[in-house]
Design a protein around this nucleic acid. Sequence first.
DNA 1: GCATTTCATTGCGTATGCATTAAATGATGC
DNA 2: GCATCATTTAATGCATACGCAATGAAATGC
Lengths: 225, 225
Amino acid sequence: MNKVLRKQMSSSQRALLELREKIFSGELAPGSDHLESELADQLNMSRTPVREAVLMLEGQGLLELRPRKGIRVVPLSPDDMQEIYDVLTELESLAAECAAKAMHKEEDLRRLSNAIDDMDVAIANNDLDAWADADDRFHTELVRLGGNSRVNSIVHMMSDQVRRARMTTLFMRPLPTKSNEDHRQVYDAIKNGDPQTARNTHRDHRLHAKTIIVELLKKHRLRFL
Amino acid sequence: MNKVLRKQMSSSQRALLELREKIFSGELAPGSDHLESELADQLNMSRTPVREAVLMLEGQGLLELRPRKGIRVVPLSPDDMQEIYDVLTELESLAAECAAKAMHKEEDLRRLSNAIDDMDVAIANNDLDAWADADDRFHTELVRLGGNSRVNSIVHMMSDQVRRARMTTLFMRPLPTKSNEDHRQVYDAIKNGDPQTARNTHRDHRLHAKTIIVELLKKHRLRFL
DNA sequence: GCATTTCATTGCGTATGCATTAAATGATGC
DNA sequence: GCATCATTTAATGCATACGCAATGAAATGC
């Protein structure tokens, strides 16, 4: 992340970004408790902007405020992941349907197809990080094309949570070589303006992904992430 | 709302509740701008707890922070309502499906059937407020039975938005006498453990409701609520 | 011992004041 | 008359201080 831009940022904004990073990097471990003053010291600022950032992160489901007990990084159980995937499944399928209805021109779908191509390359190179990155871009773009801003922000919130878990799960499973066929099917349906196929294909794809991940988490007893 | 309980509430909590009320009652009109200090004066407290409440309400999509321009009560266009209804449709249908899968005992479904009965009564009495109240309870309970906490909180957020609009639309349309048949069908499907019927019936019900409302808003040129 | 009360600690909630900065106003030059 | 820049104004962002209230420890009673 660009450190130069941060200089001219408000302290609350900086707190928000840096806390997010610390959460995603695992520097603030899931389930761990922290005091406002402790975080304020870490970030070299007073409690005020930290409180504001923490409040926002609570709203986003990343932190849990337990007065006098500590600010807790919310742990994710397999059940939580199931909940999250279920929401993602519904809302992304809706997005796929809407995107197909919208009859986008092929050039507007470029980022989508690029993401799919990148996943192919990543799989060929056995590059997990590149694959994860491209997969993110695919889903981000899909939801953007759906055109529902609320769906967009909810999906982004939930994807953040998934991202925390994926760090762990990504290295525990084989590369999803088959999943790109699904992606392409969804892409084609959107390009051809076929809402039902787009919706159903993506839905099945997501449902499948959900079972894989949740089983994996349960098998490895990853109760918290 | 219970004023006694509020006495022992933190100022931020009070700010949160009272601002919500002012927004829903229309005392703070959609599209209107307000200063932190202005709101603090209205609520008889300092800016600090107001800031915190405002931050949370921003996260819930009720307020929009525009530094040095004012805190704006977000206006809802017909397109916004469409977005919101689309999200509600997907997530409530999922909830209905899950509720049916869960095979709840009949006594656990009591609140659901009560809400349906109350709607019947309200319709017979031509009591709009009672109907709206029972309808709220039906949807709240449906989603609770679905058992997905994330779906729950998202649906509640979106329902808040719908409630703002309903104040207006409720008096512009005929009482939805037919809609209770749908509710009962959903109820039966859940009781009989038939996820697909529960899902599809509720989905159609919601899609239908969406068109009605959105058409109504568009026809009456209610660009903002 | 065990329960209960007291007390000290400390983390949080809130008020307050100052610093910052963006918007608005007026001044200056063209 | 218009554009640009300086100045003022005022709202926000942030640090700080203070008091309350909750927590845990120690002390007392049973």
